[in-house]
């Protein structure tokens, strides 16, 4: 299994632990991730709000870089990048007007031939859960988590073709294999305020606070995410949420790759578990993994 790996800006800065744990897990399982050389930002939300063509051209540029590596499949971990790459591909495949314009901007021909997959999808639908379960060294029993998918991973369904849009279950399935118990909660695809982290911090605090509260009420000991924006809003802003709403949440926000890594017996430091603002090591010790 060989993929052109598109980390995206967050995984190189605020979400380093996601990058570390993904590479560690992929390495252990023998999934080859080769970083696209000179990849550029996908443009994220500001691009599609401001200039439509640019929001297609930036992801297409990256897909073309992947194609030049002779790789027709791209793996990515950031839910927002995944969404932008998928949307761009959708346009390039199905919309000839936009395809022509974008090809003119890039100066190359592209029509959606490079496929994009999220790492979660690769683990479950390419590597297969059954194969994964055979590789597990330490089962993470006694851990109860809320799987939080966020808004961009599954939507829009016809573009991402990933999981159910209202009631996704891939991450829950993965957790069950590891021995972790996922709680049944209603906020799986609620929005955390994502791109407003800097501009409308109040909105983010309210939305993220609601998510933490709901997870807590359902008995989760941690929240598991697949998106760096969700993670930083819930983790970095947790202290501010506590202060503003007079709560005392102490809820670790983990990436699914980190839990997979622990179950595969990878050293917690190699999974970046020391990089969180809300320290998860206490919880991990208490369930007897360390």
């Amino acid at each position: 299994m060989r993929y052109a790996y598109f980390p995206g800006c967050s995984l190189h800065s605020t979400a380093k632990e996601y990058d570390l744990s993904t590479k560690a897990v992929a390495g252990t399982l023998g999934i080859e991730l080769i970083e696209i050389p000179e990849w550029i930002c996908c443009g994220a939300t500001p691009a599609h709000i401001t200039m439509h063509l640019l929001s297609l051209a930036l992801p297409v540029k990256n897909l073309l870089l992947a194609k030049k590596m002779d790789s027709y499949e791209v793996a990515t971990c950031c839910a927002a990048c995944f969404n932008r790459l998928k949307v761009a591909n959708h346009f390039m495949e199905n919309d000839s007007v936009h395809r022509d314009k974008v090809n003119e901007i890039i100066g190359e021909q592209y029509s959606g031939e490079v496929k994009v997959r999220h790492f979660l999808d690769i683990l479950i639908n390419v590597f297969w859960l059954k194969n994964l379960s055979e590789r597990i060294i330490k089962r993470l029993d006694n851990l109860k988590v809320a799987c939080y998918y966020g808004c961009l991973l599954t939507r829009p369904g016809e573009v991402t073709q990933f999981d159910d849009v209202e009631e996704p279950h891939l991450m829950d399935d993965l957790m069950k294999i590891l021995g972790v118990e996922p709680v049944d909660w209603p906020y799986k695809t609620e929005c955390c305020g994502a791109s407003f982290s800097l501009t409308k911090t109040d909105i983010v605090l309210k939305l993220s606070g609601d998510i933490l509260q709901m997870a807590y009420d359902e008995g989760a000991q941690a929240i598991v995410v697949a998106c760096p924006l969700c993670q930083s809003n819930l983790d970095l802003r947790q202290a501010m949420i506590n202060k503003k709403f007079k709560k005392n949440f102490d809820m670790p926000i983990l990436y699914f790759t980190q839990l997979v890594g622990l179950a595969l017996g990878i050293d917690p430091l190699k999974l970046g578990l020391n990089k969180h603002i809300v320290n998860p090591l206490k919880l991990i010790k208490s369930v007897g993994v360390l």
Partner: peptide, 11 residues
């Protein structure tokens, strides 16, 4: 401007 592009409405 406040729309967060979360796509809930769209789906």
């Amino acid at each position: 401007w406040l729309c967060a592009s979360c796509l809930t409405c769209t789906v």
